[in-house]
């Protein structure tokens, strides 16, 4: 479904992604793990088009998408829930979701998406009219994911969804990610919480300073000694 081939991305003279090649197949949960500065977020920005790549190719559903602008890429069915749960603080929960469906015109389809999101996150339905800025951190994260879902994406990319959340909420968010996959959405997940990520993922890539160090099934990665040592706490 998504294929990155030898992607190189630079920030000025800093070489952030070095010949990165990643594949995501339909229906999978794939996770990218790695420490700070490994190039996880840069990978997502390169895919969604907010960061131009220098060389290499990014194919989505067989079509080259590198070099296109973000709104065109979003239109093709990729959604990104950015790091730090960027909700629109002064707008209500419902308005936030409505903007997520910005590219869609069919009203009955949009209504279905509302129902789907409210079904996944009943908490959001309770707080429809409330300004998003007054939600708790976990609720804002749900809203950010829900908003990404409103565009009915084929591929959902999540950047650190567990960042700064209490452990019980982290478990809840990961459960929801599984639910979303069940409904037919492919997921590319970035996480510092490698333990949880490998737990729900099918496959994983370990990034280090811009290189893909390892790629294997999630089960094998969590058994791998080097990974255990570096990311899973021994």
């Amino acid at each position: 479904m998504l294929e990155l081939q030898n992607v190189n991305t630079f920030y000025g003279s800093i070489h952030a992604l070095k010949d990165e090649s990643i594949t995501v197949k339909e229906g999978e949960i794939v996770t990218l793990i790695g420490s700070n500065g490994a190039g996880k977020t840069t990978t997502l920005s390169s895919i969604i088009g907010t960061k131009r790549i220098k060389s290499g190719s990014i194919k989505f559903m067989g079509e080259e998408i590198s070099g296109r602008s973000p709104h065109e890429i979003v239109k093709r069915g990729i959604a990104l829930s950015p790091e730090g749960r960027l909700v629109f603080p002064d707008l209500s929960v419902e308005e936030n979701l409505r903007i997520g469906a910005y590219l869609r015109k069919d009203k009955s389809e949009i209504r279905k998406s509302y129902e789907r999101v409210y079904g996944l996150f009943p908490r959001l339905a309770e707080r429809k009219g409330q300004p998003a800025g007054t939600l708790s951190g976990g609720e804002q994260q749900m809203l950010a994911i829900g908003r990404a879902m409103m565009n009915d994406p084929k591929l959902l990319m999540l950047d650190e969804p567990s960042l700064g959340l209490a452990p019980n909420l982290v478990i809840m968010i990961f459960e929801l990610i599984r639910e979303i996959r069940k409904s037919g959405v492919t997921i590319l997940l970035i996480e510092q919480n490698a333990n949880m990520a490998l737990h729900i993922a099918d496959r994983g890539y370990v990034l280090e300073t811009g290189y893909v160090k390892l790629s294997d099934s999630a089960a094998n990665l969590s058994k791998n000694d080097a990974v255990r040592k570096a990311y899973l706490g021994g």
Partner: peptide, 18 residues
Amino acid sequence: RAMKAVREDPLAATMAGI
């Protein structure tokens, strides 16, 4: 709505396809 989204958070607005 799109204009308000741009005001509130340009990056998140981009991610909504605006």
